[in-house]
């Protein structure tokens, strides 16, 4: 028998629909971020010192090939969904009525802006000119 109360997180919504889809996607993107975000942190804080990561280094090395850009764009996709839907849960816990609606809409708008800025950054930065 499944317990009625979980110890952390959001209880699985009953009856399907969007809320259940979001519930599953929070866990799926969480798994994706467990791999991509932790690997990202280890690369940029453990393998390479932050002081070395100049704009030139990002253009020439870190984002010098399309594979890393693809991985980082995938991470962006996961994190925008996970972070903003997480904030939506926080908003739903502490607000109601008009405040909740306004804050939730602001979050959706913010998510769109962050996703657009990140996508523009990863897609439009010039590749290094190989000699």
């Amino acid at each position: 028998m499944a317990p009625r109360v979980t110890r952390t997180g959001t209880v699985r919504p009953q009856g399907g629909g969007w809320e259940l889809a979001i519930w599953y996607l929070m866990r799926l993107t969480g798994l994706g971020l467990f791999v991509t975000a932790l690997a990202h942190f280890i690369i940029v804080h453990f393998i390479y010192d932050p002081s070395l990561q100049t704009a030139k280094w990002i253009t020439d090395e870190r984002w010098g090939n399309i594979a890393w850009r693809t991985v980082d764009w995938l991470m962006l996709t996961f994190v925008v969904f996970h972070a903003f839907m997480g904030l939506r849960s926080v908003v739903q816990d502490y607000t109601k009525g008009g405040t909740r609606t306004v804050l939730t809409m602001a979050l959706y708008l913010g998510a769109f802006v962050v996703f657009a800025m990140g996508t523009i950054a990863v897609a439009t930065l010039n590749f290094p000119v190989k000699p």
Binding site: I58, V79, G86, V114, M117, A121
Partner: peptide, 23 residues
């Protein structure tokens, strides 16, 4: 979990902005 999540969310806003600046 909640406090760390909100903190990471705030950093993501800054981090996407700084990487946007690279270009």
């Amino acid at each position: 979990h909640r406090v760390s999540g909100v903190a990471i969310w705030a950093f993501i806003l800054l981090h996407v902005f700084d990487i946007w600046l690279v270009g």
